[in-house]
Design a protein around this nucleic acid. Structure first.
Lengths: 215, 215, 215, 215
DNA sequence: AATGAATGAGCCTTCATTCAT
DNA sequence: GATGAATGAAGGCTCATTCAT
């Protein structure tokens, strides 16, 4: 629950190592010994500091989430003063860059992706803390872009269409890298891809709005 | 690599059991003993028939893919005689239903999703056999919808936008079920979702085409 | 539950080693590894054959009990044709010799004594199988020695007085050996002690009968 | 070896906690941390004050013994002015009540019973301090009840017969509670049982004396 | 050809103990 | 003097794999 490092050097090194190893290998394949070795602490430390492998995993997940959100704040996407279109563009930019982060912090994304693909009991916490707020924001933004007359399910499908386009580059990165390695590898490509997703999505939303209005 | 069952009853039962258990638990969490128990064969059979757990996994993956493609042929999507729009709609319908299959064959999708999210050396085979052809088909269809003047990367991004929307409901199913459980659960909802993705994507492609033409 | 050895050599060696080590060190202090080493089998064998340390303990206990009862059958003590006095003498003889057995089978007594002093869930089984029958036999014999007019509790107290005298030499052996080492060490002394207990007990029972009759 | 509390509050709380926990769980199953937690002191205190778990155990044992003897002084049993019969009755009463004590002080008995059943190097100290004196007293009392002409071993066997009857209710309490729960549970039953043991033993001793005299 | 028995490497965890403060 | 942090040894158990049959 202590989201900030620097309290206890050993505990923090352990947390950082755990994020990395869990991201790399998954919960089961990661061994407590390897994490401790990377953190340069005793093999019993995981139990000492966290009370077990599972507890460490939960804390590592929460920690990763917190770090990622601090590093990539939603910023303009949350700014009620801005037009919906601009807010959506801002969200896509930030979200995609967060997903594509390859620095040490980038392990966070992998860790969360794993948890989504193969949920444990820790998932509910993550959803409440980190995912639901983003959906709420989009639920606020989308209706003014797609116009009135849509059911809640329709709105959700639009949100999922947008988020799904972004997650494609994270969850299916392995496929993307093999089929078309030149769309997401460099920072420039990430920007271009974000632009694409934004344009693609806004076009679709606009079209849906106009179509519905005309009917 | 023998994709068809019926060679050896024990071997085939093992393969079927492996698909199911690997899909349910993942590679590491699945135990050889559990697979053998489900297949009602000796615990040493995995090594005897396949030479180890990892080899069994690779074969199970290939087998699952083959089965899935037989059960959900691309059909109209491959029909060169049809208009591109109709072919895209057909692809989205089939693809989404394949992803959402909950029958015994549905394990296949989960298994493949796991492999994509957490690739092993078996991934390359899968991509060549099952994924690349679908991308090739879309690469054939998309240009006539989005019009001329786009780079290859742009086309790929469009493809990824479409595929990503579909995969969202598979790879992030855990999140979807928690945030908006009423968009994908029933067969009717799957159809509605497929319609949404098709409409959303066609709208976007159209818009992009028009925009580019006008410029 | 297989009370007879010779089914499976490894399993039986394990059982014998377990009886010995558990008797020597107690459940907690005994280590699976040590038992396996003594049995000259792999360290994983305990789990393979018995499913865990606790299960092995339960089986070892049952096995020890069975062995002990086979080696020291109650014999004349159960012979309804003999006079009560003779049956009681026979019981005390057999019971004390069983308790004092120092051969390999002697570990059994120590194991059971441990279980009585520090019961686990296995105790109930032991009581039903091995202890209750002996109490039942004594409950059959005592009344004809102590005469009529006693409550059930009185009879039980007589039984406990007799059994307690015998168990003293087992459960408190450590004290006996230090205070008066020359009453129980040799086979002759065991016989003399059995004679003493029999004489002491019969004297008491007789006295109680006469006293009650005269009142 | 400091038998009296009140030297150091922490040390004493530790000793009291140790008696309780060791009595409950046995030496091996008791953990230093649990004892320290109950005593509300630091986990390192055991080593600081006593130099290790084993040393603490030895001190706790000695302490328990001292407390038990203070709580249950032999009283009349030691009174040389009283007739032997009365002294024996007094001993049995006090001894049985000490054994059956269920208050906080009752932990002492359990602890000592454990030590007798499963001796450590601390046993010799206990015997010299607490057990030998009681045997000495009985060795003083018995001969005048059983008359002359008996060997030392015979006298010891009589002592062991008496003490064994009492210890039965402590060492084999688990069995007694299951076979005949209504002979020792309530205070009244304890008195009745003490009366029984006294009557039983005196009857036996008397009988032996008369028999020997007549021969 | 196919299996049941057996193995050994490795994992998570517990716990008494130590050491710097 | 007394403690909180940290450790290393050891324990029970799981599991993929091997081997003799």
């Amino acid at each position: 629950m202590s989201d900030s490092p620097c309290n206890d050097p050993s505990r923090d090194r352990l947390l950082l190592a755990a994020v990395e190893i869990f991201a790399e290998r998954g919960f089961r394949d990661a061994t407590v010994r390897e994490i401790c070795a990377k953190a340069e602490v005793n093999a019993a430390s995981v139990n000492y500091y966290f009370g077990g492998k599972e507890k460490l995993y939960a804390e590592a997940l929460a920690f990763a989430l917190c770090q990622a959100n601090q590093r990539y704040p939603l910023g303009d996407a949350l700014n009620l003063g801005l037009p919906a279109e601009q807010r959506l563009i801002a969200f896509i930019q930030v979200f995609l860059h967060k997903l594509m982060d390859n620095t040490a912090l980038g392990h966070h994304g992998k860790l969360i992706a794993r948890e989504i693909a193969d949920p444990t009991s820790a998932l509910d916490g993550i959803i409440n803390t980190a995912i639901a707020p983003q959906f709420a924001m989009l639920k606020e933004v989308i209706p003014s872009l797609v116009g009135p007359g849509w059911s809640e399910s329709d709105i959700y499908r639009c949100i999922l269409s947008i988020v799904g386009q972004c997650l494609m580059y994270k969850h299916s990165r392995s496929v993307v890298d093999r089929i078309c390695p030149n769309v997401i590898a460099s920072p420039d490509e990430i920007n271009s891809t974000a632009d694409h997703i934004a344009k693609f999505s806004l076009a679709a939303l606009n079209h849906l709005r106009i179509e519905r209005t005309q009917t």
